[in-house]
Write a protein that binds this DNA or RNA. Structure first.
Length: 594
RNA sequence: GCCGUCGUGGCUUAGUGGUAUAGCGGCUGAUUCGUAAUCAGCAGGCCGGGGGUUCGAAUCCCCCCGACGGCUCCA
């Protein structure tokens, strides 16, 4: 086992401690790979912030002396040019790195070890100092501690969540039970955690949402593209970008190349933009991709149902803008677009809280614009302000959904990126014929599709808690009309009704009692339930139970003609994507998934 | 990743060291039914996986996997 070591300037604070921790790590790894031979190799290239050579030699010798009793230790000389050959086994432990930080005293925390390379952005995030404010629609910036949240309970919850005054909950999130019971999605034990399976109903719901968001982006003028799922980790541009994005990646080996799975669509679109010829006439220029999937290797404890996944579907739209003015203008448009998209999905302004994150400079220069954002939603918003820019953006908003267990998670987001045009060498030609850097907007108008489903399920569950009847929006309901024939002789009429309805209508032809079929339709949250018997065959009209207007134990029943029912549903789902029944029309033909 | 709780037929679950429960679902039969569960019968279990303690383990101990909750983090 060869240990390449760089002693850094920070280690000078407590060289003994660092040496001890390094020894502990070496012993641990040596026992894992079952070796007695350890080579200690001073390797300055591991760090750009080295300690003094004297200190380094002493730490190296310390490590050597502590290992010498239990291992065959060799130490390469310090301060010489050396030639070496190294061979590496194809084994998970064959190459790994550790960052060891000194501590003033040993405080139980132990060694700070890193198996994966942690991006600079992740590290920056933990040190970034932010100021939390609440901005009310009148433009006043309140201190979080002084703001009265009494009339803004949800915002208070969200702020607590953000500033991490956590609250313990014992329950499983309601949407987890619902996603399974409604046969939407489920855990897949055969995959990595956070990678779900979607049953036909879930696939339909996802597909409708996906199509809707892509349509909305197209209406905004975005060009749809498709880019690879995996990229070379050592591509010089990407490598730098990886370091600036606060996410952990899945990495996979492909022959000799180390690849990583994309965690957003930025890579492909930026690499594409780099090769494009873009004129100022083309600006603002929008590109969109629906990533199926984006991969993020979130920490195990962070994964929950559909809220947080390791593989998720997300619309990712990028806008190239000529200058900051255009970027700000586009930011405003996309803010409105995100509100509209979520509204159509079934998530209203009252269901989420707005967070705006920006640098102090940006705020000072754009006070009115920022206030207008709060005005648009007509309620106070959380503002996180940084003295210095830590990330690639100067301004960002998120819409954060607050769920049944008072957890917040982000849906829509737009960011103004001032770094990546440079990094990817993206340029456009201005009026004067000169190459210029665009300002880039990142936009996910809906946020992750799975997270939208999570929000809809949580919202429905909160409604149920409040004594209402839970349901999905009609355009997203896998079955829109359930037709229940009373006896076999009514099947023909049932089929006729189904064929006359221009929506997803199915027929419960099972040999069950009417009561049971009604109950099952309710359990599936079917928006319209039609029971057909002799009376209907005779009158030609149908008796419809309308879920939307029902109260628990108080179904709202309306008699109407089949055409009336049809036009009612068409009106309700107008402008939204349509899809076919995800399962056999006859319920007797359907397998069970759960 | 760390800490905690949990893991029993497809699902929900009883069982705290001595014969593996029950309901739902599935299958078979009867019933052809008017708005939230018709009746009867049958099949279905390596008690998450591996190791250990014991005459004997679903039950006690250790390791692993997974889910959930907390820390942390995000779309």
């Amino acid at each position: 086992m060869t240990v390449f070591i760089a002693v850094e300037s920070t280690d000078e604070a407590n060289p003994k401690d660092v040496a001890e921790k390094a020894v502990a790590e070496i012993k641990k790894t040596a026992s894992q790979v079952n070796t007695d031979n350890v080579m200690l190799y001073p390797y300055a290239h591991l760090s750009s912030d080295l300690s003094s050579p004297k200190m380094a030699v002493s730490v190296m010798k310390d490590i050597e002396n502590s290992l010498i009793d239990s291992f065959n230790v060799k130490r390469a000389p310090f301060g010489w040019y050396k030639a070496f050959k190294i061979s590496c086994k194809g084994h998970p432990l064959s190459e790994l790195s550790r960052t060891i930080n000194p501590e003033s005293e040993s405080c139980g925390e132990g060694v700070d070890t890193e198996e994966e390379v942690v991006s600079e952005a992740l590290k920056a995030e933990s040190t970034a100092k932010s100021y939390w404010k609440v901005l009310s629609p009148d433009g006043v910036l309140h201190d979080v501690d002084d703001f009265n949240f009494n009339d803004h309970e949800n915002l208070g919850t969200f702020v607590d969540h953000e500033i991490s005054k956590s609250r313990a909950v014992e329950k499983v999130p309601p949407h987890v039970e619902l996603m399974r019971r409604l046969e939407i999605a489920d855990y897949e034990p055969g995959s990595d955690s956070g990678n779900m399976r979607y049953y036909p109903k879930g696939r339909l719901i996802k597909s409708l949402l996906e199509r809707y968001v892509l349509d909305s982006s197209a209406r905004e003028g975005a060009m749809e593209v498709e880019t690879p799922l995996m990229y070379d980790m050592n591509h010089p541009t990407l490598k730098k970008y990886l370091d600036r994005f606060p996410a952990r990646q899945y990495s996979i080996e492909s022959d000799k190349r180390q690849m990583f799975l994309r965690f957003a669509a930025c890579f492909g679109q930026f690499l594409m933009s780099h090769d494009m010829t873009i004129s100022h006439h083309n600006l603002p220029m929008k590109m969109v991709e629906l990533t199926r999937y984006s991969f993020r290797k979130e920490q195990r404890g962070e994964l929950v149902g559909l809220r947080r996944l390791r593989a998720f579907t997300m619309p990712d739209m990028h806008t190239m803008c000529g200058d900051m003015d255009q970027a700000v203008e586009q930011f405003g448009r996309q803010y409105q677009m995100s509100i509209d998209v979520l509204k159509d999905v079934g998530i209203d302004v009252s269901d989420y809280e707005v967070a705006i994150r920006l640098t102090r400079d940006f705020y000072e220069e754009n006070k009115e614009f920022i206030t207008a954002l709060a005005k648009k939603v007509n309620k106070p918003v959380l503002v996180e302000m940084w003295e210095k820019r830590f990330f690639y953006f100067v301004l960002k908003f998120e819409f954060n959904f607050v769920d049944a267990l008072k957890k917040a998670s982000a849906l829509s987001t737009v960011q103004i990126d001032v770094e990546n045009a440079e990094r990817y060498d993206i340029k456009y030609i201005d009026q004067a014929g000169e190459a210029k850097r665009p300002v880039v907007l990142h936009c996910s108008p809906s946020g992750a599709i799975e997270r939208c489903i999570y929000a809809l399920l949580e919202k429905a569950s909160m409604k149920a808690e409040g004594g209402e009847v839970p349901m999905l929006p009609v355009w997203l309901s896998p079955t829109q009309v359930r037709i229940i024939p009373i006896a076999e002789r009514h099947m023909e009429f049932a089929e006729e009704i189904a064929s006359r309805l221009q929506c997803r209508a199915d027929i419960d032809d099972r040999e069950e009692t009417v009561g049971k079929k009604i109950r099952n339709a309710g359990q599936e949250w079917v928006p319209y339930v039609v029971v057909v018997g002799d009376r209907e065959v005779e009158s030609g009209n149908v008796n419809v139970t309308v879920r939307e207007e029902s109260k628990p134990k108080k179904p709202s029943k309306i008699e109407m003609s089949v055409d009336e029912l049809n036009s009612r549903i068409l009106a309700e789902t107008a402008g939204m994507p349509q899809g076919h029944l995800p399962l056999a029309q006859k319920l007797s033909m359907r397998p069970r998934f759960i």
